[in-house]
Amino acid sequence: MTDIFSYPFMQRALLIGIIISIISSSMGLFLVLRRFSMVGDTLSHTALAGVALGMITNTYPFYTAIVTTLAASVIVEKLRKEYKEYAELSLAIVMAAGIGIASLLISIGKNKTIGIMNYMFGSISLVTEEDLKIVLFLGAIIISIILFLFRALFYITFDESDAKLRGIPVSKLNLLFAMLVAITITLSMRIVGILLVSSMMTVPVATSIQVAKSFKQAFIYTNIFGVLSVTLGLITSFIFDVAPGGSIVTISLLLLLLVIILKKLYGKLVKKATNLLDGGVYNEQNI
């Protein structure tokens, strides 16, 4: 077990894993609460097109993927304004474009795009020193921006129209936020895999809002569940030699299940205790 941490590639993977879990959980909290959790899925599918493009043109796929996801994030925001009443339509359109272009590029690329599976489901052993540098650099920028804009993002998330009234530059912040999501997805795809990136942005949030009693708690718990899922998932991936994306998502889903069960049990216990103490008067708000 202790051997795991002596492999340089594993050290790199764990360090990258922790950073991407912090940024994707934090971004995910705002996305989920704005009922926009499908953004992750949409942008990750456009990353697939970017990776295929990189492989065909012999460019490092990370760079091409970051270009396609950033472009996609801008298009999503533009379309979202165009189809105000059907916000999710913008996601469906961009997702279709992402998968369509990706499948074309993959079939055109033939032998060149064989390695794309590693990007779809994630891989630990292929994580390079360059990946680590990129993740450290961009991860630090994203975390700083989130902390700097925390209050404004909270305000927009709770009530976007009120935020506009108060003079918060909502459209600009939405665009910036979508671009940060795009970068986060590109950073995460190497380890978690394109197909599972968005689960990193949603499952820890789903677990955290089961128990959070404030926004601050929701933010902290989301990060704890995110980091826990990635760390345990990577270790599991190493031990059982399975794709890290799958093990990370499975662990995060198990954590969600565990929290839901514990919450139900706790609720029943409180109900019983309250019944005993108050002679049958039960107040749901006390749970």
């Binding site: 609460l33 909270f154 709770f158 809002i209 959070a212 009693k213 404030s214 926004f215 708690q217 929701a218």
Partner: peptide
């Protein structure tokens, strides 16, 4: 607003 919004 979303009534399950986790904010005090």
């Amino acid at each position: 607003f979303n009534t399950r919004f986790p904010a005090t």
